[in-house]
Amino acid sequence: MSFLARRITSRSRLSTQSLRLYTTSPSTPLAAPSPNYTQGERTIHEKLANQLQATKLLVSDVSGGCGSMYSIQIASPLFKGQSLVKQHRMVTELLSEDIKGMHGIQIKTEAV
């Protein structure tokens, strides 16, 4: 595991209870975005859920609320057989316009 992947993984811990809110079985659609999401979190969630057929997705504004840095945890069947770099590239390509206004983004992907 690369240094960057370890850093992203170590900073992206979630409680099991939080994951349950955003996890579905592969045959059912992803749960709607959390009502507590900011507009930025909701926008990112909807783009990724729709385009990547996400079975688990959590988007968090980790900038303190200003929308300049996000943490994304996503599981998708489309990641299966893809390298970690390719998985991250799939996410960043979908968010390319949003990323232009950010200072940073943390991505953790999982193939299901």
Rank of each mutant, 00 (worst) to 15 (best):
M1T: 02
F3L: 15
A5W: 02
R6T: 09
I8Q: 04
S10Q: 14
S10A: 11
S10W: 12
S12R: 02
R13W: 04
Q17C: 04
S18I: 08
S18F: 02
L19P: 02
L19F: 05
L21W: 02
T23I: 08
T23Y: 04
T23F: 00
P26M: 14
S27A: 14
T28I: 03
L30E: 00
A32E: 12
P33G: 10
N36G: 13
Q39M: 09
Q39Y: 03
G40L: 08
G40M: 10
G40D: 03
T43M: 02
H45I: 02
K47V: 14
N50L: 06
Q51E: 12
Q51K: 15
L52D: 06
Q53F: 06
Q53S: 11
T55Q: 14
T55A: 07
K56G: 04
L58F: 08
L58V: 13
D61K: 05
D61V: 06
S63L: 04
S63T: 11
G64H: 04
G64Q: 04
G65L: 05
C66F: 04
G67I: 00
S68I: 00
M69R: 03
M69Q: 15
I72R: 07
Q73A: 04
A75P: 00
A75K: 00
L78S: 10
L78D: 13
Q82A: 11
Q82I: 06
L84V: 15
V85P: 00
V85I: 15
K86C: 01
M90P: 05
M90F: 10
E93D: 15
L94Q: 13
L95K: 09
S96M: 10
E97L: 11
D98A: 09
K100A: 15
K100G: 09
M102W: 15
I105M: 05
Q106L: 11
I107R: 03
I107S: 12
I107C: 12
K108M: 13
T109C: 06
E110C: 10
V112R: 00
